[in-house]
Simulated assay, not measured.
Amino acid sequence: MSRIGKLPIKIPANVDVSFSGLDITVKGKFGTLENTIPDVLEIEQNEGNLIVSLQNQTRTAKALHGLYRTLINNMVIGVSEQFQVTLNLKGVGYRAAVQGNSIILNLGYSHPVEMAIPEAISAEVVQNTTINLKGCDKEKLGLFASQIRSWRPPEPYKGKGIMYQGEVVARKAGKSGKK
Rank of each mutant, 00 (worst) to 15 (best):
M1V: 10
G5R: 05
G5D: 10
P8C: 06
I9P: 01
I11V: 15
V15H: 01
V15A: 02
V15I: 04
D16H: 02
D16S: 02
V17G: 03
S20W: 03
G21W: 05
G21P: 04
L22V: 01
I24V: 11
T25A: 00
T25S: 01
T25Q: 02
V26C: 01
K27L: 00
K29Y: 00
F30L: 02
T32C: 00
E34R: 00
N35D: 11
V40Y: 09
L41K: 03
L41Q: 04
I43Q: 06
G48Y: 03
L50G: 10
L50W: 02
V52F: 08
V52C: 07
L54C: 11
Q57D: 15
T60Y: 07
A63S: 13
A63H: 04
H65M: 09
L67M: 06
Y68A: 01
Y68C: 04
T70Y: 08
I72V: 13
N73D: 05
N73P: 02
N74H: 13
I77N: 04
G78R: 01
V79L: 02
S80P: 01
E81C: 01
V85S: 14
V85E: 12
V85G: 02
L87K: 11
L87G: 12
N88Y: 12
L89E: 07
V92T: 08
G93P: 09
G93E: 09
G93H: 10
Q99L: 15
Q99I: 15
N101R: 14
S102M: 08
I103T: 07
L105R: 09
L105T: 14
N106L: 15
L107G: 05
Y109G: 14
S110F: 09
S110E: 14
H111A: 12
P112S: 15
V113C: 12
E114M: 14
E119A: 13
E119Y: 04
A120E: 11
S122E: 12
S122F: 05
E124T: 08
E124Y: 04
E124G: 08
Q127H: 13
K134C: 00
K134N: 05
C136P: 00
D137F: 02
D137M: 07
K138S: 10
F144W: 04
S146Q: 12
Q147L: 15
I148C: 11
R149V: 11
R149D: 09
W151H: 15
R152W: 09
P154Q: 12
P154W: 13
P154K: 13
K158D: 06
K160P: 01
G166V: 07
V168I: 14
A173V: 12
K178G: 08
K179W: 03
